[in-house]
Design a protein around this nucleic acid. Sequence first.
DNA 1: TGGTTTGTATTGCATAATGCAAATATGCCT
DNA 2: AGGCATATTTGCATTATGCAATACAAACCA
Lengths: 170, 170
Amino acid sequence: MPKRAPATDDTVPPVSDPADEVVTAVLTASRLLVSVSARSLAAVEETLTLPQFRMLVVLESRGAMNISRLGEHLDVIPSTAMRMVDRLAAAGMLDRAPNPGNRREILITLTSTGRSTVRQATERRRTEIARIVAAMPRSQRAGLVKALQTFTDAGGEPLAHRNAGVDVGW
Amino acid sequence: MPKRAPATDDTVPPVSDPADEVVTAVLTASRLLVSVSARSLAAVEETLTLPQFRMLVVLESRGAMNISRLGEHLDVIPSTAMRMVDRLAAAGMLDRAPNPGNRREILITLTSTGRSTVRQATERRRTEIARIVAAMPRSQRAGLVKALQTFTDAGGEPLAHRNAGVDVGW
DNA sequence: TGGTTTGTATTGCATAATGCAAATATGCCT
DNA sequence: AGGCATATTTGCATTATGCAATACAAACCA
C-alpha cells in the first residue's frame, strides 16, 4: 500500500516552461540510468531483493545504527525495517548487537559478507557507467560533468527539504 | 573505485578509466532523478503502488495488449501481471476485453480514469524537472541537453541488447 | 484429420515488502 | 513516583513476485 500523504504541494511556483526539450533530455537520461542501475544490481543480486540491497548500502555508507534510524534512511517504518533485518541477518549479511550505552536499542552492523556484496554491486555499476562514458566522444565528457553538476546543484535545494536523509540506494 | 588489475574481471572490457569524476557526476545526478521521480509519483499516487503505476504507463504509451505482453514490458511473469490486472481492474483503472481475433488471449485496456492518472503523474514529473532546470543558469541549459543526449546515445546500444523492450516507467 | 506442440490465462503455494496498531521495555523529566 | 517519549517486536492485512500445474485454444505435422 501507499505511504503517507506527501504534502500536497500548493506552494509550487509556476514554472516558466524552460524548453520541454531540456525536460525530455533529462527524462530520457533518467531512464537509461535507472535501467543501468537495475542491471548492475541484478548481476550481483541473485539472492538479494532491491530493498535488501538498499539496506546494505545504507549501512555501508553510514555505519551501524539502530532499526528505527535504518528505517528512516530507507523511508519505511520500523516494523518493516525490523523484518528486513530479520531476513538479512538470517542470510548472514548483517548482525544485531545490543547497544552498550542504551539498552532499548540494538545496533545493526554489516558483516564482511554484506560489505563485500555492496562493494561488488557498486563496482559493477560504476563500471557500467564508465563504459557508457567511454563510448562518448572525449570532447563531450567535460561538458557532461559540468552540466550534471549544475543540474544536481540546482536540484539539491528542494531535495534537502522534501526528501531529507532518504537514501535512494540506486 | 577505479579498475586497475582486471585479473579477476574477464567479462568486462577494459575501460580506459575515463575519470572517476564523470562516473561520480552521473551517479549523483542519478540519485536526484530517481528521487524526483519518486516524489512526483507519490504526489499523485496516493492509492497506487509503483508497480501498478508502471503498468498503467505501459498501457498508456503502448496501447492495449494481452497479459503476457504486458508482463514482458514490466519484466514480470504472467501470473504476476495477471494479479496486478485483477487489482487495477477492481480499482477501475483498466478493463479486460476478450480478443475477437484470438480466443485464448484477452486485451487489457486503460479506462479514462487510468489514463488521466498517468497523465497527471507524468505532468507532475515534468514540472518538477522543469523547476530544477529553471534553477540552473540559463547559459548551462543548452550544455545539459547536449551532454545528456550524447550520454543517452552512448548508452543506447547496450540497452537495446540487454534490456530490450523493458519499460522502466520512471 | 487427428495427435503433438506451443501459447495464454488462471490458480495454488510460498516468500518478501509494507503499513498500522498494539504490547512491552527503556530512558528521561518533573 | 508518574508520565511521556522512544525502540523493538509481533499480529494482521494487502501487494508484488516467482514457480508449478491446469485448462483451453491455436498451430503444426504426419
